[in-house]
Design a protein around this nucleic acid. Structure first.
Length: 522
RNA sequence: GGCGUCGUAGCCAAGUGGCUAAGGCAGCGGAUUGCAAAUCCGCCAUCGCGGGUUCGACUCCCGCCGACGCCUCCA
């Protein structure tokens, strides 16, 4: 099967061939842990997850690594991010978003980072982000890789030795972009064309100390930085870009990896700098063969931002805080019903990673419908084969599964793959064992029906005691509804149906009586 | 200014130089139903605009318009 992706490095679709047959090494830029991760973060992360799962479906042994950025990074002229986070924690504690006792000392950056790291892992696991289950071995923290020969300090030393870095008048260690002729290849910029400070974020004072305006910081001596380490260049902290170069190399154990992923905004400067650092340190002509970037997510046709009120963390969505138009007033209200993680996952992966996806409440409801159908379909297959429980194996030679996979092999065409899967679900399933085997393979990539299949018992992880109690209550109403229906007492029956709906369940009439199921959203 | 992605029905979204332009949601009509829901059957687009190439373009080329991202915080 021909596998191809759009490679940001060359700006074209290229056939993918792993460096080692049957093995794929992937590195994804992970979250900063100063706050809860939002749905835009997860759009990018889940795209990486989809890619990883696709490779596994096609028989590859995947080593996927994603970092946790837990070093506070000084933005020139602004407060340290970790300090900002400390202040935010204090506010969040008051509002209850950060539970009492979760962070004993808001002044301790390690406690803050640790709290948000755990919160991230929890969200990521609920969303079926596989690598989050491989913490900590494949989810390294930047703070664990500062020191040592294999750490950031070691790589910076190497860069100094090889003439790719220098120490400026003020003691700051900079990477010299002029020492690396390939600088700019990924972003399509050349040193001449990079308009210095087009984004208006660089202070003039620092620029004057550099040999070239494009030079970027590797180490900054600073006694006052909230997180600091000893180094040959004084006590201070590492630059933002160096951590990914170091962790990719040390965890994956290769100088050159197959695939590097991230959000499109990371292309410049972050990934450009990673390439310069890694190649500068290893002497290789490349860092990753494929650079694959996910586009930004929009919310209700606008850029997601806190000021527009359309900024959602993953847990905001789970908790039903997505705003929808109120039918009566036309204003915006919170949808109020919790959203199943499978629905959010599906919503975030169902459109192509390289298009601007528009996250909407309507789309979320759409996704809930689709997930519902998939789950129902799976249930019907399992019911049919319940008697003898035999299973069969299926491989990609199966026509439907083969077509599904071929779609994904073409630059991760999820929509195309769903265009194969959904009509197939509607079709005739005379061999339920085979159909279930096919569905399981599809679900090993989509991971929505159910989520996290094969990793954990999702039902155990996701169903709280109160969920179970609610379900039992609704079931009881359904039973009473059946009794009323037998007596043709329609008003009573309808009243129970209303109660069931109001509690967040749907009720279906079947030959065996009323059957309830939880609504996946709204 | 530089670099890049994109523009397909009410919405989401595939795809192809020429058979009927996937699929989903919503909607409409019908079956079913105590009424609904669920389910089933049916209906529902000429592909941003203007040129060009071609026997033939939504698909290739040129121009234009528009959207979006990056150009040292950002997934």
């Amino acid at each position: 099967m021909k596998i191809q992706f759009y490679n940001s490095l060359t700006n074209r679709h290229e056939e993918f061939t792993p460096l080692e047959p049957g093995k794929v090494s992937m590195y994804s830029c992970g979250p900063t842990v100063y706050d809860f991760a939002h749905i835009g973060n997860f759009r990018s992360f889940l795209f990486g997850d989809l890619l990883r799962r696709f490779f596994e479906l096609t028989g590859h042994d995947v080593h996927h690594v994603m970092n946790i950025t837990d070093v506070g990074h000084m933005v020139e002229g602004e407060a340290d991010k970790m300090m900002e986070a400390a202040n935010r924690v204090k506010v969040n504690k008051k509002s209850g978003r950060v539970p009492e006792g979760a962070i004993e000392n808001p002044e301790d950056p390690y406690q803050i980072a640790d709290f948000y790291t755990q919160a991230f892992l929890e969200d990521a696991r609920r969303l079926g982000y596989k690598v989050a289950y491989e913490y900590p071995q494949n989810v390294p923290k930047a703070t664990d890789h500062v020191e040592g020969a294999d750490g950031m300090i070691g790589m910076i030393q190497k860069l100094l030795e090889r003439g790719h870095a220098y120490i400026a008048d003020d003691g700051v260690v900079y990477y010299s972009v002029e020492s690396f002729p390939e600088y700019g290849k990924l972003s399509g910029n050349s040193l001449e064309k990079i308009q210095s400070n087009a984004g208006g974020r660089v202070s003039e004072e620092n620029q004057s100390r550099k040999k070239h305006p494009g030079d970027f910081m590797l180490w900054k001596p600073d006694q006052h930085h909230i997180m600091k380490w000893d180094s040959p260049w004084g006590v201070g902290y590492p630059g933002w870009h160096i951590e990914c170069s170091v962790m990719a190399r040390s965890i994956i154990g290769r100088d050159v990896i197959d695939i590097h992923t991230g959000g499109e905004d990371l292309i410049f400067p972050h990934h450009e700098c990673e390439i310069a650092q890694s190649c500068g340190a290893t002497g290789q002509d490349r860092f990753a063969n494929f650079w694959i970037h996910a586009r930004f997510l929009f919310v209700e046709n606008e850029k997601m931002s806190k000021s527009l009120g359309n900024f959602y963390t993953a847990r905001d969505v789970f908790d039903g805080k997505v705003k929808v138009a109120d039918e009566n007033t036309g204003g915006l209200i919170e949808m109020g019903r919790s959203v199943h993680p499978a629905v959010l996952r599906f919503e975030l992966i169902k459109s192509h990673y390289r298009t601007n996806m528009n996250f909407t409440a309507k789309g979320l409801i759409d996704s809930a419908q689709t997930i519902d159908r998939m789950v129902e379909f799976r249930q019907s297959l399992e019911d049919k084969i319940a008697d003898d429980g035999g299973t069969v194996e299926v491989d990609l030679s199966h026509p439907v599964l083969g077509e599904f996979t071929a779609m994904l092999a073409d630059d991760l065409n999820v929509s195309g793959a769903l265009g194969v899967m959904l009509p197939w679900i509607k079709g005739d399933h005379r061999d339920p064992r085979m159909s279930l085997a096919v569905l399981k393979k599809m679900n090993s990539v989509l991971s929505v029906a159910p989520i996290n299949e094969g990793i954990v018992n999702a039902a155990e992880e996701l169903e709280s005691e109160s969920d179970v109690a609610e379900f039992e209550q609704a079931q009881q109403w359904a039973n009473e509804m059946d009794t009323a229906r037998k007596d043709k007492d329609w008003p009573t029956s309808d009243a129970f149906r209303d109660k069931i709906h109001a509690a967040g369940f749907e009720v279906q009439q079947t030959p065996e009586g009323s059957r309830i199921k939880r609504k996946l959203s709204v």
